[in-house]
């Protein structure tokens, strides 16, 4: 039986990793900070998947992002998705050559639907993650926001979700702008926006503050994976502890034995040609 997933999302902006709260950004530290203070090489053994997004508001330096991605994913042995501002197949290809297994597309899902089809035919549909940022409206209902939450799409969120999941995407990353970075827990009411015959995996994001919130998300049968992008809520040993709490609580997450790492690295190897 396929296992559920715990995903860590890293937000990157011009050389720094960021905290986001309702899409307002705060600089935290660079790659060196992440590796030393956050012990990322250790954290990466407590997650099932990594997502890295370039959320720069202005011009993006794709080459610098790719260099960071390569360095970041060196000791990381899980599937990796990367994205942020993807507008061309070549841009996606450069991410896939820098350690990514999948690409994350957001604004182009609506502005340039041909790109979604091109990415799927070039790399396979399973390679395309559709990221949608959703905001609750005062007058009720939800709407989809694009361009890093700056532009509102007319029409209901239900309409756009249905269109996107029927396009050539492999899975849906559904993020709540209202809960983003608040630590108040997921907005599970967003799940009612999904089509009833949803046939693609759904990743829920936005609002996690503790492992109970992760468990609440994973308990919903419509959810395949939960994500957190908060750099401080699970700092230190937090993700490992949250993972153990979920597994202890009966959630079907993949399991491995971290104690084997010393054993694995202890042996000398011969050369090999790949």
């Amino acid at each position: 039986m396929l296992k559920k997933r715990l995903i860590f999302t890293l937000l990157y902006n011009q050389g720094s990793f960021m905290l986001s709260r309702n899409f307002r950004l705060q600089k935290v530290g660079n790659l060196k900070w992440l590796q030393t203070n956050y012990d990322f090489s250790h954290i990466s053994f407590s997650i099932d998947e990594l997502i890295v997004l370039d959320i720069a508001r202005g011009e993006r330096d794709t080459q610098a992002f790719c260099e960071m991605l390569k360095a970041l994913t060196e000791g990381c042995f899980v599937p990796i998705a990367a994205g942020g501002g993807i507008r061309t197949v070549e841009h996606a290809r450069s991410l896939l050559r820098s350690g990514a297994d999948k690409v994350v597309v957001n604004t182009a899902l609506y502005d340039n639907r041909e790109l979604t089809a091109d990415l799927a035919s070039e790399f396979g549909q399973q390679c395309v993650v559709a990221s949608m940022d959703v905001k609750h409206q005062r007058e009720g209902g939800y709407q989809v926001m694009v361009d890093n939450g700056a532009r509102r799409l007319s029409g209901t969120a239900e309409h756009w979700i249905e269109q996107v999941v029927n396009d050539s995407v492999g899975e849906l990353y559904l993020n709540s702008i209202d809960r983003d970075g608040t630590g108040q827990g997921y907005d599970l009411r967003m799940l009612d926006l999904l089509p009833t015959s949803m046939s693609k995996p759904v990743i829920l994001a936005g609002g996690v503050g503790n492992s109970t919130h992760l468990a609440e998300g994973l308990a919903d049968a419509r959810i395949d994976a939960v994500a957190t992008a908060h750099l401080f809520n699970f700092v230190g040993d937090g993700l490992r502890q949250a993972r153990n709490a979920l597994i202890g609580g009966g959630v079907e997450l993949p399991q491995w034995d971290l104690r084997q790492l010393d054993d694995i690295l202890g042996k000398q190897q011969a050369g090999v040609t790949a």
């Binding site: 042995f77 190897q269 011969a270």
Partner: peptide, 14 residues
Amino acid sequence: WSVVNALRYLGSLV
């Protein structure tokens, strides 16, 4: 890249 990355992590010459 991922395969090479894993083999190098294990100390192989790839």
